[in-house]
Nucleic acid binder design. Structure first.
Ligand code: FES
Ligand code: FES
Lengths: 152, 152
DNA sequence: TTATAAAAGGATAAATTTGTCCTTAATTAT
DNA sequence: ATAATTAAGGACAAATTTATCCTTTTATAA
């Protein structure tokens, strides 16, 4: 469905949104450990997410790290996909044809378009903040570890 | 969403089901041209689809080629995904966690599970034959060419 | 003002996916 | 039988994705 890059981007952003604020920034080590992802690769992906004021904010140097502004929290999840250039999942033909439309439908289009629409809704109508709120309510997971990792 | 391999596998199988029968087999050249895919690569993928009596049938030598048996036409589209080992799209966590379940849900699970269910239905409840029938009714496309290619 | 801590950035490497080419095996028309 | 035709299979190559490492820049604590 999504590339590793997009998966890590989503997990990292949600994790940072959950735990990070402007005066409690998260370091790359904590993020990578928190979402169970390769550290250096995750750092690269966070660069995409921070570039030109996109989704994630960052500060270098001592006490630096990653966090999300209130503005960013209101962004749709789709903004994360855009940052890693993977929105096409929302628009693409399931058979990989160059065009997907009513005027040029593939044999699966009629059935697939409903799914596509819901995917679109999922990514466009859901904000990062909403996911954080849900996480606060229920007991949700964002890594593969057995129990939430204790801070040392 | 799907890999090129899976996309070509779906397109090739549907195309063969549409145009090929036991006494009108299709050659790899026609298939690749018909679905707008790289010939040699498509040949490799068709090997996966023919191996141990899976989805596509083939005969070598003069008058050889690819076709679908009546049994194969009744198979769910999922059988094609299985042949290229890509069923996981139906079961995987959208954030890439190793497990996706009610007992270990990620922050998007609640919303995504409905989509997953429909994807599952699409691939399991739809048979190859059904797609062919739909194609016969409507004017559907399975390649990127402007109009259906004339046979020379 | 110096040392330390952190992200940014660049180069490179490893792994996987996608794609090609050539030989082999099988079938059939001649 | 022989030649022609076609898929199968193996080896390899190109492209892309995933991942690591090292240096540079920026900020702050001491
Ligand atoms: S054309 Fe294939 S899904 Fe729309
Ligand atoms: S756990 Fe993530 S989609 Fe089910």
């Amino acid at each position: 469905m999504l590339s590793k890059t997009a998966e890590y981007a989503l997990r990292a952003t949600i994790y940072i949104a959950q735990k990070g604020t402007e005066d409690n920034k998260l370091g790359i080590d904590e993020v990578a450990e928190g979402i169970d992802s390769p550290k250096s690769f995750t750092a690269k992906i966070l660069q995409l997410l921070t570039q030109n004021d996109r989704v994630v904010s960052s500060v270098r140097g001592r006490n630096g790290g990653f966090y999300l502004t209130d503005r960013a929290r209101k962004l749709p999840v789709r903004a994360i996909l855009e940052a890693v250039e993977e929105e096409e999942v929302i628009t693409k033909c399931v058979l990989g044809l160059k065009e997907c439309s009513e005027t040029r439908p593939c044999p699966m289009h009629l059935q697939y378009k409903a799914i596509k629409k819901q995917l679109k809704q999922l990514f466009e109508k859901t904000s990062i903040q909403q996911l954080v709120e849900e996480s606060n309510k229920g007991n949700l997971f964002i890594n593969n570890q057995k129990a939430p990792k204790k801070r040392s």
